[in-house]
């Protein structure tokens, strides 16, 4: 029952926000590195504007500066909701250039990437504090969601009372475990999807319109 109550409160909070202002909500796409944040941002942007937001890569910390796409109109159920999307760098508590060496990146370049990735984390945290009205938290459903970063970020988001959707990404992979993600953060709604394959995007847009419209 506690879960239902939380969900109910969450929905009512979102509903309150829905009618608070007509300005587009700025939605930050957050999560650890390599969860598929940019792939999702590109999927949303391409679906509704035709443009991409940034380059996607298997290399972690590919997104090292926050990128924004304004005025994304999403039409659901006969009405249109407009949001600004902010694709943020993956958040981590440690950044090590050695993890780039495995991706055929030279040491000097890896060190530079590492520094930029660290700056990117600082920028992501800054955006979270100042500039977002809601959060899409993207998790790789093939990995363990119980991490310090996830717990801390969700805690911060909750402390700011921001509406948040948990996206369990990469469900096209065999190792995906949606339930594990949902169980990790039962107080929030979890939406399974594959941003790469476009799986379950209808529900994704329904939820975005419901929570952030």
């Amino acid at each position: 029952m506690g879960l239902l109550t939380n969900l109910k409160d969450s929905v009512s909070r979102v509903t309150d926000r829905l009618f608070a202002s007509d300005d587009p909500k700025r939605i930050g796409i957050y999560g650890p590195p390599n969860a598929g944040k940019t792939t999702l941002a590109n999927r949303i942007a391409r679906d509704w504007t035709g443009d991409a937001i940034g380059p996607e890569s298997h290399v972690p910390h590919e997104t090292r500066r926050a990128r924004r796409k304004e005025g994304v109109d999403i039409e659901r159920n006969g009405r249109s909701v407009t949001i600004d999307i902010v694709d943020t760098p993956g958040v981590a508590t440690k950044v090590d250039y050695k993890e780039f060496l495995d991706h055929d990146i030279e040491k000097d370049d890896a060190i530079r990437r590492s520094r930029e990735a660290t700056e990117g984390v600082a920028e992501a945290m800054h955006w979270l504090r100042e500039d977002v009205d809601g959060v899409i938290y993207v998790l790789d459903s093939t990995t363990d969601p119980f991490t310090q970063v996830n717990t801390m970020l969700i805690g911060i988001i909750e402390s700011r009372d921001l509406p948040v959707l948990i996206f369990a990404n990469k469900i096209d992979l065999d190792e995906a475990d949606i339930k594990r993600v949902a169980d990790a953060f039962p107080q929030h709604e979890t939406v399974p999807l594959s941003a790469l394959e476009g799986d379950n995007m209808d529900e994704v847009y329904d939820k975005i319109a419901e929570y952030f419209g």
Binding site: T93, K98, S114, R115, A122, E123, M125, L128, R129, L153
Partner: peptide
């Protein structure tokens, strides 16, 4: 090339690195 980040402090501080 190796960094440790204090996310809470990054979140709390007014200035932006």
């Amino acid at each position: 090339g190796q960094y440790e980040l204090n996310l809470m402090e990054l979140y709390d501080r007014n200035e932006y690195i």
